[in-house]
């Protein structure tokens, strides 16, 4: 009897301990992650739906949305092609210097976004290495659209590849070898054997790459030149509006980016769940 009671007490203590650990963790997440997320939407809708609609349809804001979409539309496909090619190289062949190649591939993740932007100014700026050539060709890269694209490519470079490499490594080459030995061409094998095998990993990489491409601030801020309605992406437009004390509009544009973030998280969980099921 006495022993039973003691055991009951211990299990009660354990349950209490467990409950308090869960509560502390949740409280931390609520204060540091959840409240800021809700605050974005609360700030955006503070003055009602009409003000919100007006804020996001304002010409400069519309221009920034278009620019952001256009940048992502260019950067993400480039990233997909590069990711597929580089992970094919890394997982399908054995060669010297693979470790070095992998390290170079990770560099953009280790570099501060501000540095990622500034190197393009040093290259293509008015006093940069290629300045005479660009002047001769009458091309403007920095403080213009091409610079924004280049800086975004730099910061997103590893995103698709690093999702694909583990997936392709795990899958191995046996199915591809079978396809090739049956006479299919390399490209056909790639399209009808490799791609279906890695589709979820690829989609996962695309989603992450897109989120970063649309949300990049530091690197783009350096190369954009902040020309309103021309070279301001959505995150830059948020900064401009905020610095003008136009908080409601700043949060309205932010809410669009927050919705993108939420969509990213939802798709990410669905894909993770799908991958685990397979």
């Amino acid at each position: 009897m006495g022993k039973n009671l003691e055991e009951k007490n211990i299990s009660l203590l354990l349950r209490l301990g467990r409950l308090s650990l869960i509560l502390i963790a949740l409280l931390f997440l609520i204060l540091f992650l959840f409240v800021p997320l809700v605050a974005v939407f609360a700030g955006a809708f503070e003055k009602g739906w009409d003000t919100y609609l007006k804020a996001i349809t304002e010409p400069d804001v519309m221009a920034s949305i278009k620019l952001t979409l256009l940048v992502a539309l260019i950067v993400v496909p480039i990233n997909v092609v590069f990711g597929l090619i580089s992970s094919w190289l890394i997982t399908r062949f054995k060669f010297r210097g693979k470790g070095l190649l992998l390290t170079i591939l990770e560099i953009p993740l280790a570099v501060s976004p501000v540095i990622a932007g500034m190197v393009f100014i040093l290259l293509y700026g008015s006093r940069g290495l290629f300045a005479p050539l660009l002047e001769y060709l009458d091309l403007k890269i920095v403080f213009a659209f091409p610079g924004i694209v280049l800086a975004t490519i730099f910061v997103t470079m590893p995103y698709v590849a690093r999702e694909l490499i583990p997936v392709m490594e795990e899958r191995g080459v046996s199915e591809e070898e079978a396809s090739l030995s049956m006479g299919a061409s390399g490209f056909r094998t790639f399209w009808s054997v490799t791609i279906p095998n890695i589709k979820w990993g690829l989609l996962y990489g695309i989603i992450l790459c897109n989120a970063r491409a649309m949300g990049e601030f530091g690197a783009v801020s350096v190369v954009s030149g902040h020309i309103r309605g021309v070279t301001n992406t959505m995150p830059l437009q948020v900064e401009v509006l905020y610095n003008e004390y136009n908080f409601t509009s700043a949060f309205a544009v932010s809410s669009l980016l927050a919705m993108l973030a939420l969509l990213t998280l939802i798709l990410k969980s669905i894909l993770e769940w799908k991958c685990n099921k397979e």
Binding site: P36, G215, L236, S254, L260, A261, L262, K268
Partner: peptide, 10 residues
Amino acid sequence: ALPTAVAGIT
């Protein structure tokens, strides 16, 4: 997933 500028102003 949340752009850093959004996190910053919030």
